[in-house]
Amino acid sequence: MKIAIIKYNAGNIRSVSFALERLGVEYVITADPQEIINADKVIFPGVGEASSTMKYLKEHHLDELIVKLKQPVLGICLGMQLMCSHSEEGDVDCLGIFEEKVKKFDLPKPNPDFIKVPHMGWNAITNLKSRLFDQSLEGQYVYFVHSFYVAQGAHTAATTHYILPYSSALHKDNFYATQFHPEKSGDVGSRILENFVKL
């Protein structure tokens, strides 16, 4: 079992690699197409801005590579948003693996509870639908940091409520994605990563 973490101009790759180390899983951080294609599973992490990251992926031909992958792929945070069809962040067309669209959170008006954007902190995941999740995870809390959200659609695999209900996970064929950071979500997050490793 070897997991390839796609290396590109994004932060927090270290957090993902430490999480895999804690699970005792072998991994490689790489941008090499052959190494990514040959891996048993692929993680597409992400923290950053959508349009500049899409530009980077295109320049390095990683966009064509990711959509053609056949093994289980897990997108995290910006990784998930980039797997959608379009993002309002920089008004950019993304990889189109999921038809869902990425939108900006609008603050409620009026805002008596002082709701903040970014949505930063712990929130519950409900209505779980993919093999990333098992029954014990329904309603559990995971860690989020994001200003843009994926609207609900045909591939919604988890729902979280912040300002409105949105997709906190997606699933289609071999592609899995979470808006939250499983690598930073305590024992619940470790369990989700473990479920991905076991797919």
Partner: peptide, 8 residues
């Protein structure tokens, strides 16, 4: 420390 903790 980062290696040993699974929270932000």
């Amino acid at each position: 420390i980062a290696k040993h903790i699974n929270i932000p």
